[in-house]
């Protein structure tokens, strides 16, 4: 299956191959409890004890649940919920997110985190550079733009979610959070990113870059410094840029390879997580695929085949987890 040499296949051939590889992935029909919106949820025999409606469900008549989104039925004791396979990011407290400042408002920054509404980063929940204590004066409210401006990218953590309207509050009260510079942002669908123990990941040697897997689907790819212990220097020296604001070419190429690996996974609808990213990067190196060709159908087909093989080897029968 690995053919680094030989005549390059035509685009149609490659597309057909990709379609075939995707079909193999999809044909692994483990019986999943899928429902369409509007369907009654089959609760089986053990529904006597009563059920509780979770997300994605509503009561239709007595003791009858109906799905309000298309997706997978999940059950925890009495609680039944339906998880949609697509949709905007739904925040949970403690999630690491990457966001973009859309507005500098009164004592807060409004951030786009790909959610149903913009998140708020309060001035009171950021660490000032150098770790100095903030003096609550009007002056530093006026100087907020010196810290973060519109369109700045920021890594942060979800601090709180308002139960009433779902408004999200963020904080950057740790050395690892803050402004992101000297790297690139890749946006993928938020459902492709699973919650992990570590969302700041340093990829090992030949790649040698750092990534932040924002739970909201925003993936930041930058230098390794942003992950290494201690986080950023006090004067925001975390960025890969040297004093001249330049990132050296080798690092840029490595970052691009990782970024395209993320894009390739997302294009195929495969989950984006560190081992998968490393594997795609290694595969591209093995096949001597150039960075610019990593999003072509030939390489995508290879990635899909690789994933299909892996699933077959693992026995395919496992239920989905998350």
């Amino acid at each position: 299956m690995l053919q680094p040499e030989g005549p390059a296949p035509s685009l149609d051939e490659a597309a057909a191959k990709l379609a075939e590889a995707q079909a193999i992935l999809q044909s692994s029909t483990a019986s999943l409890p899928l429902v369409c919106l509007g369907d009654a949820i089959d609760l089986g025999a053990d529904a006597e004890g009563g059920v509780m409606k979770g997300h994605g469900t509503m009561m239709a008549g007595e003791a009858q649940l109906q799905a309000t989104v298309c997706g997978l039925v999940e059950r925890v004791n009495k609680l039944v919920s339906v998880r949609a396979l697509k949709g905007r990011y739904t925040a949970q407290v403690g999630d690491v997110v990457v966001g973009r400042v859309t507005e500098v408002a009164q004592k807060r920054w409004k951030m786009d985190v790909n959610g149903k509404q913009d998140a708020a980063l309060l001035l009171a929940s950021v660490n000032l550079p150098g770790g100095v204590q903030r003096r609550r004066t009007n002056v530093d409210e006026l100087n907020m733009r010196e810290l973060y401006q519109e369109n700045d990218l920021i890594s942060a953590e979800v601090q709180q979610i308002n139960q009433g309207d779902g408004a999200v509050a963020l904080h950057t009260r740790s050395a690892k959070y803050g402004k992101l510079q000297g790297g690139q942002l890749v946006t993928v669908a938020p459902y492709l990113i699973k919650r992990l123990k570590q969302h700041f990941v340093a990829l090992a040697a030949p790649l040698d870059v750092g990534i932040i897997l924002g739970c909201n689907g925003y993936v930041w790819i930058g230098s390794k410094d942003l992950v290494d212990a201690g986080g950023r220097d006090e004067d925001e020296g975390m960025e890969a840029a040297g004093p001249s604001g330049q990132v050296d070419l080798q690092l840029r190429e490595r970052m691009c390879r990782v970024a395209n690996a993320v894009r390739a996974l997302a294009a195929l609808g495969l989950p984006v997580h560190p081992p998968a990213i490393v594997e795609v990067c290694n595969l591209s190196g093995l096949l001597r695929v150039e960075i610019k060709d990593m999003l072509g159908p030939e390489f995508l087909a290879q990635v899909a085949y690789r994933e299909a093989d892996r699933r077959q080897a693992e026995g395919d029968a496992q239920p989905m987890d998350h």
Binding site: P271, H273, P275
Partner: peptide
């Protein structure tokens, strides 16, 4: 439409598959 949606959901779910960590 329901059939089409179910089929679409199934494709999405299966591509995502189990996650290894």
């Amino acid at each position: 439409m329901r059939q089409a949606l179910l089929e679409h959901t199934r494709k999405q779910a299966v591509v995502r598959g189990p996650v290894r960590l």
